[in-house]
Design a protein around this nucleic acid. Structure first.
Lengths: 264, 264
DNA sequence: CGACATTTTGACGCTGGTCAATATTGGTGG
DNA sequence: CCACCAATATTGACCAGCGTCAAAATGTCG
């Protein structure tokens, strides 16, 4: 597609570097490949890929944060993940060669581009490369399970708390030390990720602040008691999962729902 | 269908058959492989694999239904999927060679066993084999996204309705025509899958029956109005996600609710 | 036929969604 | 440089969906 990046030079990375970024053990052979992959940079709001679009490449995030989402039946977006440094983006397109979600940049970002053709090629040439992709994909599956588990198990406040703990644990979100982080996403987006409304997210922030666990100043969060955030409180009762807003645009055919039942 | 499978014990299947089952386009070369994979049969309650266990093989479900789940913080299980005919099981172990969830048989089941060693081997020998795994994994990711989206978007009744519609759309669940299906799982398990309590699931069944959309008789469901089930109603409002219960072994301990406000 | 497990139904209330109004921030023009 | 307006965030009041507690009903199994 169109490369509008005029900025500096898109530089390149080796396969070994990509492996390191993904946190995968680089197989021996990997080090010997001199093949290099181009980088691409995006400004906030720019889209890396869209739902329905044919697969052109997979991406490994080098810097910045993205938002991956789909539109549900009523048109409201459901945030699937906030890919950041070290995450693989675009894997959901491998099953039918078309992206199944939208991915947009939340801030200034940079990715390593792994062209689709290269995948088959590399797989053939390098034994370890397949493991590389398998693991990245598998990790995504596991992460999805973990998220579902949290959403079903925790109350609103605990979910937000863990969300923050998770962010602080990742590199790339910290604006300096691992004590202060600057959120690249809005409360709205956090809500659509955790299955909460914007108001509830805001209240959770306030409550955590009142409890002395964090310091909140807009999108700048100071972690005061990481332990408290991680040890989410089962709080009260419940465990349901309500409904979205909807209200407005009702009436929609909605086939959607592609896969209730998945595989393991 | 099952005629090549001689009932007796562990039978075997070719790679091409496995591809067909998974609904993946069998690559040319696949047809030429004469390698055959053994089958394995399980009785209700038997475990195909457990969390933490080292990866030994991947499985393709031939018949019956499984339940894949993890235990959340409080020990309550969260059902991740109900793998049935055509689904790949065990993929979550590819990232670190250890299973990340439990998978148990809900009824009499049969799977094709793809030994872990064969994977690397096949990948090296067959170009198409990697695509095969990529797609199966990717499909799982996409299915997970779809499920999350539905859980966050729909009310309890709509979730149950769609769940049933989804089941009726799959082969393997229908006890005859696609009009009557026999659920292999309990209400409890449906609830832990949809993020609802057993009571809410039960009430949803009753409501759908009262509305004339289904006929309920224990675990035998008659679909009377499939369209109504698929066109889930955004119902009311909400969209929160409460907390789990922990019911069972509860008896006290302390947490319950007393600490609720304090913790918050 | 009796003890147990699963499902159903009812009453009650907490969590979190909805509606709504007020603050803060940020951008733009005079 | 400051007033004005739009976007985002915070708070409050209200209310309803669904979890929790409880018990009855129906089915399973020995």
């Amino acid at each position: 597609m169109i490369r509008d990046i005029v900025t500096t030079e898109s530089n390149s990375s080796s396969l070994a570097q990509a492996c390191r970024l993904l946190g995968l053990p680089a197989v021996a052979q990997v080090a010997n490949v001199e093949l290099r992959f181009l980088h691409r940079r995006l400004k906030p709001g720019m889209r890396l890929c869209s739902q329905g679009e044919p697969l052109e490449a997979l991406y490994v995030v080098v810097a910045g944060t993205f938002k991956a989402f789909v539109d549900d039946a009523e048109g409201a977006e459901v945030v699937l993940a906030f890919p950041a440094r070290g995450d693989l983006v675009g894997a959901d397109a491998l099953c039918d060669q078309h992206h199944a979600s939208y991915v947009t940049a939340l801030d200034d970002t940079e990715v390593i581009v792994l062209p689709a053709q290269s995948l088959a090629l590399l797989g053939r040439a390098l034994d370890g490369f397949n493991q590389f992709i398998y693991r990245a994909l598998s990790r995504e599956v596991v992460a999805g399970h973990a998220l579902r588990s949290s959403i079903q198990s925790l109350g609103a406040e605990a979910r937000v708390a863990r969300f923050l703990a998770q962010l602080s644990a990742r590199s790339g979100f910290c604006g300096g030390g691992n004590e202060t982080l600057t959120l690249p996403m809005s409360r709205q987006e956090i809500g659509r990720y955790l299955g909460l409304t914007i108001e509830t997210v805001s209240r959770a922030f306030s409550a955590l602040q009142a409890a002395g666990h964090i310091g909140v100043s807009q999108r700048t969060i100071r972690i005061r008691d990481l332990g408290a955030l991680e040890t989410a409180q089962p709080v009260a009762t419940s465990r349901a999962a309500p409904r979205p807003a909807a209200a407005r645009t009702r009436r929609q055919a909605g086939t959607g729902w592609g896969g209730l039942l998945a595989a393991a």
